[in-house]
Nucleic acid binder design. Sequence first.
DNA 1: GATGAATGAGGATTCATTCAT
DNA 2: AATGAATGAATCCTCATTCAT
Lengths: 194, 194, 194, 194
Amino acid sequence: MSPKTKEQFEEIRHRSKETIKQTAMELFAHRGYHSTSISKIAEEAGISKGLMYNYFASKEALLGEIIMEAVHIGQYLLNQSLEASDDPYEQLEILTNNSINWIKSNEHYWKLLTSLAFQPDVQKMMLPIMKEHETAAIQKTLPIFEKMGLERPLQELMLYSATMDGVMIQYLQIGDEYPLEDMKNMILERYKRP
Amino acid sequence: MSPKTKEQFEEIRHRSKETIKQTAMELFAHRGYHSTSISKIAEEAGISKGLMYNYFASKEALLGEIIMEAVHIGQYLLNQSLEASDDPYEQLEILTNNSINWIKSNEHYWKLLTSLAFQPDVQKMMLPIMKEHETAAIQKTLPIFEKMGLERPLQELMLYSATMDGVMIQYLQIGDEYPLEDMKNMILERYKRP
Amino acid sequence: MSPKTKEQFEEIRHRSKETIKQTAMELFAHRGYHSTSISKIAEEAGISKGLMYNYFASKEALLGEIIMEAVHIGQYLLNQSLEASDDPYEQLEILTNNSINWIKSNEHYWKLLTSLAFQPDVQKMMLPIMKEHETAAIQKTLPIFEKMGLERPLQELMLYSATMDGVMIQYLQIGDEYPLEDMKNMILERYKRP
Amino acid sequence: MSPKTKEQFEEIRHRSKETIKQTAMELFAHRGYHSTSISKIAEEAGISKGLMYNYFASKEALLGEIIMEAVHIGQYLLNQSLEASDDPYEQLEILTNNSINWIKSNEHYWKLLTSLAFQPDVQKMMLPIMKEHETAAIQKTLPIFEKMGLERPLQELMLYSATMDGVMIQYLQIGDEYPLEDMKNMILERYKRP
DNA sequence: GATGAATGAGGATTCATTCAT
DNA sequence: AATGAATGAATCCTCATTCAT
């Protein structure tokens, strides 16, 4: 008889949103953003098409929230790595380890993000967010290479970042056969304390 | 007025196909595969929608031919680099230079290819081709690193390849501000004749 | 803390219904019946969507009640005008004045009613009510023109009514720039005591 | 074997567009703009839903073209009436006759236009067109009342126009039982040569 | 009385593809 | 070879209405 409390509604909303986001993320990652229909998401999430729109204003908005979540995780990961130590060599090792571990256990996210990063029509929406995030990431990461006393720290950072990107991308393409650990060790070999 | 010979017809057909492929490629690269309609391609190429289907069985087939072309160019590039010298250090330098130059002057192709490579729905179609090509490329490139006398030539090749991929991808994302030459030099620095 | 009496419940219920009706009426008038969603009405009225259905069986029923209210006001207006005098010239003057004043101070109602009156899909529902009301109105108004001793009182009534409708409609379309008073005076000029 | 000529395509296009416009106009008039779905129009016109969009960019664009057509007819009617004579009394008589005859034989158009004129959401689109047309109509019609030597020609024009609107609207509501001819004669009675 | 989550039918629109000429 | 009209399935999205609490 008594109506549901605000907290109950809050709880329901939260759970539904998370379910939808999770389902959508996996589908987007597996089949591509454009090739995943709202119908499919709803079906897979076990809800009605209409309910989607109770939680997300549009397919694009849903994607937006998923991306934001990934960006925030990325930021958290970076911050955590930097805070774990003051020594640049350790920082880089931790950052590299964290990144690779995170990728390994969250392939979905990265499959999705890379697929989006290269789709021109989606880029328009992601680009501002990504650019901002990237700038912040560079500013935070650059000190590592500066403290290492390298000659051209920015270039070193860029090469490190390109290599990490390349490795991750190839891992995503190839799968578990990819010698991720070997690659990681070879990368870290380069930035060893002299 | 003279009736066209079979060769002339072939020639016309070939040129039309090239025009369409070129147009489609640019549109795909600029706007994304899914966001580019057959109508738009036909319009841009100055032909009718119907004629498109005279040349290509489907939108997917058109995409397929574009991809194949890129793959062949990649193979040609690799072969050329390898044939230019017997010395592994020179070979790698030439290969690296060729790759980077080719990317710089054919951004369209690579934007498209990378965008496709990460779209799961397109991957299904590309993957067999790409896998085969990749295997062939590894077989051809591996000797370079072997001849260099490196400890683990395959891993070195994979890291080289990942780094090149990462650099190219970042260049495509960032554009002319990206220090492509710097990156190239830093990469080659690593594989210097001892 | 005293339990509410039946009358108090009735009173609360009545006030809630009035609030909803008023809100709905303004939204319908401003944005159109089809373009106004139940959600919007509920939100604007500060209640839940579900509660709406506690008061009104459907969107159509809500509309129906709004229309009925307007019809009743029209009837009241007409009766009041007729009762104010026995002299037909005075009666017509009062009726004309009342009508115009009422329109001026209740634009919402009339905007809505005219918009509805011309929407074929709504007409089906309104028509019986309107027809009945119209017949009653004619029966009540006709004596005015008969008492004036005009040759063809019914036709005179119809022309009067058409003119009033036209004036009101143009006023609703044009707004305060419309010379409503001038029009009124010109109309009354025609039905002056000889 | 030979492909269709440009003229043939032109002809087909023209016929299809007209069919769609005609069908849509009748449906809009009978059932209301919002209550008429593209599906229904296509079905009634005997074509596929998709074809609609080959000819009209959207439902709204289709409506727009129908409205423009009506506006042009109105302008033509007015011009023709004015050109038929120099005598204002004759001009008004011809205009009145023309208007009423046109309404009688084109109920659809006027049902649609009046229904649209009062739907707030459609108004946004129609208003600029209608306003412009109205201003032009007033400028053309005003001289009639001026030449008649009436005291306040603009007001007379407005009352005439309101009356005509009212008569037409009531005719549309009531149908053939409405004494259209009587009304017309009574109106013209007022503007008789002294 | 009261809430808002959930439904699902229906609507506008897009687009790869076919086909008569 | 060439055209573009025509199709219809699929897509995103809206919204009146129901219902468990």
